[in-house]
């Protein structure tokens, strides 16, 4: 999907570039551009709805610009967002990269980009009962999770059964997921294992609710082309993070798990050393955001040529990150 993003004068990203993999876990201190990367993807999605600008000349060299390149078969052009100021990016231009660059690809790519979604899940929103019907697309805060689950159960009972099975595997203290309909609204309950107890949503832990939302995305028969997840580890016990990673890998590498649908590109942020530990064998999936003064940059962990030697000296990947030797830590703390 998105092969790379280059930033100029966009918030703290004064001059930064990052190549994106199918799965990307972004680590770094607060204010280092992690969220800005996700915002850039969302702005591309927003502007993709509009006609392409044929106004080519941008005279203000200080204007913020974000340039996207894409993986084959959409690698024939670059999409550039230009901003009037740091907040208003309202110009999208396409530039052919080679003689073979076919702008006509944009129509196909655009359709996929429009499905991109970003999530910062909110347990208080998730537990509220929701109206039946409505969009089947999970809201950015997860507030319609129950309706999405009900919709999935209706259109794809097999996928819903798979979701329930995976949920109960991750949380064996529960025996069933129950979608409770009452006067035009849905709410969710979890049946306790070993005792006839229904646990209402407002008594379910935050982490459990967040994992349910991730499962809803992973079991969606037609997931978004790009999923951005902020604070992926939030509320989730370190031992369950392996399960969370598995869920996301199924989205990004569906063929490895017997699925025939298109891969989803995932961009997730975290502050968890324990989550980072799980990527020791895949440093190419780690993006380190760094901040020097007010300027932020990105780097791939796999570009660190001495990583193997550092790991051989001892310490987990999370330990190395926390120590500061990989970068991606707050300055002077």
């Amino acid at each position: 999907m998105i092969a790379s993003v280059a930033f100029r004068n966009f918030k703290a990203l004064r001059s930064a570039r990052i190549e994106l993999a199918p799965f990307n876990l972004v680590i770094g201190p607060n204010g280092s551009g992690k969220t800005s990367l996700i915002q850039a993807v969302l702005r591309l999605r927003t502007l993709a709805r509009l006609p392409i600008s044929d106004t080519f000349a941008v005279t203000n060299l200080e204007a913020a610009q974000i340039a996207f390149r894409f993986n084959p078969p959409h690698n024939g052009f670059e999409a550039t967002l230009t901003c009037r100021d740091e907040e208003s990016c309202d110009l999208l231009q396409l530039t052919p990269l080679a003689a073979s660059g076919e702008l006509i690809d944009w129509a196909v790519l655009r359709t996929r980009l429009l499905t991109a979604r970003s999530y910062l899940l909110d347990s208080r929103a998730i537990i509220r009962p929701v109206q039946t019907g409505g969009s089947r697309e999970l809201a950015s805060d997860g507030s319609n999770l129950t309706a999405c689950l009900a919709g999935l159960r209706e259109i794809s009972p097999d996928a819903y059964a798979g979701l329930c099975a995976e949920l109960l595997q991750l949380f064996p203290e529960y025996a069933d997921l129950v979608l409770y309909a009452d006067r035009g609204t849905f709410s969710l309950r979890l049946a306790g294992g070993g005792a006839p107890v229904m646990v209402p949503a407002d008594e379910v832990s935050q982490g459990t609710l967040y994992v349910m939302a991730l499962l809803a995305l992973a079991h969606d028969p037609a997931p978004p082309a790009i999923i951005c997840l902020e604070e992926l580890d939030r509320g989730i016990h370190p031992r369950l993070l392996r399960g969370v990673r598995d869920v996301l890998y199924r989205l990004t590498h569906p063929a490895d798990y017997g699925h025939t649908r298109s891969p989803v590109q995932v961009i997730a942020t975290t502050h968890s050393p324990q989550l980072l530990d799980l990527f020791r064998d895949h440093p190419e999936e780690i993006v380190i955001a760094d901040k020097h003064g007010r300027a932020a940059t990105f780097a791939r962990l796999s570009d660190r040529t001495d990583l193997t030697e550092l790991l051989a000296e001892g310490g987990t990947l999370g330990d190395l990150w926390y120590s500061g030797i990989l970068g991606g830590v707050p300055e002077a703390t």
Binding site: Q169, R242, G243, D246, Y249, R250, H253, D256, Y257, D281, H282
Partner: peptide, 19 residues
Amino acid sequence: TRRELKARVYGTERPNLAQ
């Protein structure tokens, strides 16, 4: 490599827990 060993055993470099 460790990754290659994983791919040979599980059919993927990124096996989920069940696999």
